[in-house]
Design a protein around this nucleic acid. Structure first.
Length: 679
DNA sequence: GCTAGAGGGGTTATGCCTCG
DNA sequence: CGAGGCATAACCCCTCTAGC
């Protein structure tokens, strides 16, 4: 079939012809001829030919010669590759050593590129860590090995790796190592298909849980690289840092470091020290020029230490943990605040009308939250009735929404100071200034307003400390530049405590929170609200339950199933009317009174589910507007809790809410009181 | 029944050795 | 020559048990 070979034929055709001739002789490949010669030389060592071959092997020409043969265009044909791959002696004795030498060189070269000396590592290395970038390094430094490893892990199947023509070793290795991979071999195909099925199953069944074979290959290669060179520890360093920061026990790290999945524990601590030094330098630099908020809070720990006391007994340790907060670079808030942006004297204008509640707004928000509860339970039904009327899903328009950006937080070294006292607070402020390398004169000279933050105790003590200093001579000593502000999170905690205190009650009454907590066997929740998250979940769940209960009550249904049927057969007007009715009931004082007392008497009926629902809906709103960054709504809902705090024993919060209202509405030269969303 | 101390589990710091 | 890892000291905490 093929054209006859003549002297003018193309070189490729000539080589193919030689190949054909060798195969017709039953010798399979040119390399096989060479192998037979070596064998022959072994059997008849006294011949001159054997001596020549020994010399070739001794001089190292053999490897070069084989490599030349492998590089020859003749071996680009599939039949030649198959011939080599099938020749086990040739594979084991000749090709494998050549290939392995190349692979070792690749891995060593790779090792030089991924070092991360732990006393040179920087925070940027951690931030910019990207497994994709590591893969790029691997592909550029160890392309052949990566190719082979991908083949073994069968991660590169879908890519057209088989089309590559530049490396014969790999293709032959790949086929050779996966069981003489030719089409005729029956052992080869079935596992492949089975494997593929498993892959599909994984992809269908568990979304996002598919095996990341490429990642496995990358990690395997990086571990191999570390076996040559312990300094090739980039990935291991990152993993180790992750372990240390997530509280993995040292013994676990020790085990994994033996497998070179991480570096050793000592190395990790060195890296952590180095990183903390870097960060300290960074925040010291940034605090001089950028807007930042100094936050601190106290930590009480009980120590049971023998050595530090004469008698072994528990003692309380008071420590303070300061933080520095920077705004996100994109938020546009990087300039420090200046002194003239606030006018403290305007606080005297504070009047009772600043605390009047906007009931219309609160009702609207409550209706929205009640709607959300029903939406989550009856989404298809509500969607259907919305579609029938062709109206969009009601959503609450933000009042004044700030863009939510992640701020940058640096923890400062923990101070052995109790900030519970006024003097302690001053000490904390001085210690922070010392840590940052700033002093009072810096703020005064640059006309900078320094924000501090914390819980209400911190804020109160800071302010009292400032009051004590009012007689100092210089502005720097008076610390006039300090403006304490509160974090809404502590506000929410106080609101939670207040609600819990109001409705905790006894375990005997079904409408009290303690009964509900007991019913679901939630023993982490208590009246002190030590477990914020648990209490949060309980309040939200009870809020949902109350909304549903009200809805069932209003529609005259007797069970939740009946209400489900009602939801299927109603109109939008009836549905929304029901929600408005619920809100009206919980916000109307007359209706509440009627519910609370027996008609015409002062005898109390069962206490306040409507009030509890109202407070919980307001609490949910407080939570939601914090999450959405809606300062306008926050301001309105804070007034609701302000009134509540005034009647509670949360004295600090009662007082500070008033102060906060002045801070928000009167003192600054800017305002949050725009109507509607700024965008 | 109480208590001191042994002993084991665990963490952190540091000196020293090895190896790239 | 310096980074990484090992061995070890120092320390804390908890539990168990012998001895009173």
């Amino acid at each position: 079939m093929a054209p006859p070979v003549t002297i003018e034929s193309h070189l490729q055709r000539k080589l193919e012809y030689i190949n054909e001739v060798i195969q017709n002789l039953g010798l399979e490949s040119a390399l096989n001829v060479f192998r037979l010669e070596i064998q022959d030389a072994g059997e008849n060592p006294r011949t001159t030919r054997a001596g020549r071959i020994r010399r070739i092997i001794r001089n190292g020409d053999l490897v070069d010669g084989i490599a030349d043969i492998l590089d020859s265009p003749a071996l680009k044909t599939q039949s030649a590759k198959t011939a080599i791959a099938r020749d086990s002696i040739l594979m084991d004795r000749v090709i494998l050593p050549i290939v392995c030498t190349d692979f070792a060189a690749e891995i060593q070269a790779l090792g030089k590129k991924i070092t991360a000396p732990t006393n040179k590592i920087t925070p940027e290395d951690l931030e910019t860590f990207d497994i994709g970038a590591l893969k790029d390094v691997i592909v550029s430094e160890a392309p052949h090995f990566f190719h082979v490893a991908s083949h073994i892990a069968r991660s590169g199947r879908n890519k057209d790796l088989d089309e590559t023509t530049e490396e014969e070793e790999d293709t032959s290795m790949g086929e050779g190592s996966s069981g003489n991979g030719s089409e005729s071999d029956p052992d080869y195909e079935p596992p492949s298909e089975e494997d593929e099925d498993e892959d599909d199953l994984l992809a269908d069944g568990k979304e996002g849980k598919k095996k990341d074979r490429e990642l496995m290959v990358i990690v395997a290669l990086l571990i191999l690289a570390m076996s040559y060179n312990k300094f090739a520890n980039f990935l291991q360093c990152i993993v180790g840092y992750f372990f240390l920061t997530t509280g993995v026990p040292k013994r676990t790290t020790a085990v994994l470091s033996r497998m070179r999945i991480t570096v050793s524990y000592e190395t990790i601590t060195r890296a952590v020290k180095r990183i903390s030094d870097c960060l300290a330098r960074e925040y010291r630099q940034c605090t001089k020029t950028e807007l930042h908020v100094q936050t601190w809070d106290n930590m009480h720990r009980t120590y049971s230490v023998k050595k530090r006391l004469l008698h072994k007994s528990q003692h309380m340790s008071h420590e303070t943990q300061p933080f520095i907060l920077f705004m996100h670079p994109d938020s546009g808030l990087t300039e420090p605040l200046r002194m003239h942006t606030i006018d403290r004297t305007r606080a005297t204008e504070l009047n009772v009308h600043h605390f009047l509640l906007d009931y219309g707004h609160l009702k609207k928000v409550a209706a929205h939250h009640a709607f959300t509860v029903l939406w989550h339970k009856y989404t298809p039904d509500i969607q259907r009735i919305l579609k029938a009327k062709n109206i969009p899903k009601p959503c609450f328009a933000p009042v004044y929404q700030l863009p939510i950006k992640k701020s940058c937080i640096y923890p400062l070294p923990t101070l052995k100071i109790d900030e519970g006292s006024i003097a302690g607070n001053l000490t904390v402020m001085n210690a922070i200034d010392k840590e940052l390398g700033l002093n009072g004169d810096f703020y005064v000279d640059n006309n900078i307003l320094q924000l501090t933050s914390g819980d209400w105790l911190t804020v109160r003590n800071t302010r009292k400390a400032l009051c004590q200093r009012v007689e100092c001579r210089s502005a720097a000593d008076r610390r006039e530049f300090v403006e304490p502000t509160i974090g809404p999170f502590h506000y929410q905690m106080a609101a939670q405590r207040c609600i819990m205190g109001n409705y905790w009650g006894s375990t005997k009454d079904i409408s009290f929170l303690s009964k509900s907590a007991g019913l679901i066997r939630d023993n982490k929740v208590d009246i002190t609200c030590k477990q914020f998250q648990q209490c949060d979940h309980l309040l939200n769940d009870i809020g949902k339950g109350h909304v549903l209960a009200y809805a069932i009550d209003f529609t005259g249904c007797h069970s939740i199933d009946e209400f489900g049927i009602w939801m299927k057969n109603n109109s939008w007007t009836k549905f929304w009317g029901m929600i408005e009715e619920i809100v009206e009931r919980i916000f109307n004082p007359t209706l509440i009174q009627e519910r609370r007392y027996e008609p015409g008497t002062t005898k109390k009926k069962k206490p306040g589910a409507p009030l509890a629902l109202r407070d919980i809906l307001m609490y949910q709103k407080l939570d939601a507007c914090q999450k959405e960054g809606d300062v306008g709504r926050l301001e309105k809902v804070m007034k609701y809790f302000n009134v509540m705090f005034q009647g509670s024993n949360q004295f600090n919060y009662a007082k500070e809410t008033i102060h906060l209202t002045a801070c928000l509405e009167l003192m600054p030269s800017w305002t949050f009181r725009e109507s509607g969303s700024p965008q």
